[in-house]
């Protein structure tokens, strides 16, 4: 914001100095990044769209085989594939459990952690560490904790579900949702802590003089005060949830039992790379991006100030 007038002045100066700008060396500085973006993002993005609309398949190197344009055929094939529809339903189950839990828990824990708690850094370490640790490590731990003869079941005793959590078609996806909530929560707590610093102290103080109790202050001051952060948390949680791969691949052995915890990205891998059908895999990817975009827009709309 403070740079706006500078940019204006700079622009006038730049026009005087010519077409390349006041410091043309800037183009050289950004060149590696631009090359990177063009080869690693722009080109594959265009390629993804191309693959999705063609009958694309892998060939031996050097062999040229026609890959005809097929319009929306790949999308039609994907949308009538029961496994694909199931993976999107599974994602819906995941989001319904994960997103509200994430928003409520991270907001409550950040509020509890805000404003002078003793041992704050110890609590923070505990909350952030799962977020920073590799999912592969933590999935290994959860697998053992939630296995049939694992610690969780031996604590529950007769209440343990049968079949056990990860091999139970009703419980597999909710268990993954719990795992991801636990894994990612630290990052969202961090976002809420940043947002809470911008909630004016005076609002809390004046609410207290008005006789508001803790819960009323939380509802009337904290929640509206961190609305922008809530939008961000909602969108990021939706994106994370829609892009699950490692968890169903390892925790439930490839989206099991029998597809009950498969996800769109897992199918992209299975169809595109294992079964060598990159065209339908690319179509699943585009559908996924569209669905995530729509959900994010809705989340943004819902949390916008009225």
């Amino acid at each position: 914001m403070t740079t706006a007038p500078t940019a204006g002045q700079d622009r006038v100066r730049a026009q005087r100095r010519g077409w390349l700008g006041a410091q043309p060396i800037g183009s050289l500085f950004t060149l590696p990044y631009l090359v990177f973006v063009l080869t690693i993002f722009a080109y594959p993005l265009g390629f993804a769209v191309y693959i999705a609309f063609h009958d694309y398949f892998f060939t031996a190197p050097g062999v040229e085989v026609p890959k005809p344009f097929v319009g929306f055929d790949n999308f039609a094939a994907v949308l009538t594939d029961e496994r694909v529809l199931e993976s999107f339903r599974n994602t819906a189950v995941f989001l319904v459990i994960n997103v509200p839990l994430t928003v409520v828990l991270s907001m409550v824990l950040a509020t509890a952690l805000d404003s002078g708690v003793r041992w704050a850094s110890a609590y923070r370490i505990a909350f952030y560490v799962p977020y920073l640790t590799a999912s592969v490590s933590l999935v290994g731990v959860w697998m053992l904790l939630f296995s049939s003869g694992g610690l969780i079941n031996s604590v529950l005793g007769p209440l343990a579900p049968s079949p056990s959590w990860l091999i139970n078609s009703t419980l597999a996806m909710p268990t993954i949702a719990l795992y991801v909530t636990w894994k990612q929560l630290g990052f969202y707590i961090l976002l809420y802590l940043a947002a809470l610093q911008n909630v004016p102290r005076e609002l809390h103080e004046s609410a207290m003089t008005d006789g508001a109790n803790g819960w009323q202050r939380f509802r009337a001051v904290t929640i509206p005060g961190v609305r922008a952060a809530t939008t961000l948390v909602l969108i990021l949680a939706i994106i994370t949830g829609a892009n699950l791969f490692t968890e169903p691949y390892l925790l439930t052995a490839g989206g099991g039992p029998d597809g009950a915890s498969s996800t769109p990205v897992l199918l992209i891998y299975q169809q595109g790379i294992q079964q060598q059908n990159p065209d339908t895999a690319a179509a699943i990817g585009m559908l996924l991006v569209i669905v995530v975009g729509l959900l994010s827009l809705t989340a943004n709309r819902l949390t916008r100030e009225s």
Binding site: G21, Q23, G26, A48, A282
Partner: peptide, 27 residues
């Protein structure tokens, strides 16, 4: 720095953050 292409680079940077890796995975 003020140079030709600065605005374009900035816009590209924002766009890149919106493209999910999963879409690019196969290509």
């Amino acid at each position: 720095l003020n140079f030709r292409g600065r605005g374009v680079t900035w816009v590209l940077m924002l766009l890149v953050q919106m493209v999910p890796f999963q879409l690019l995975m196969i290509p």
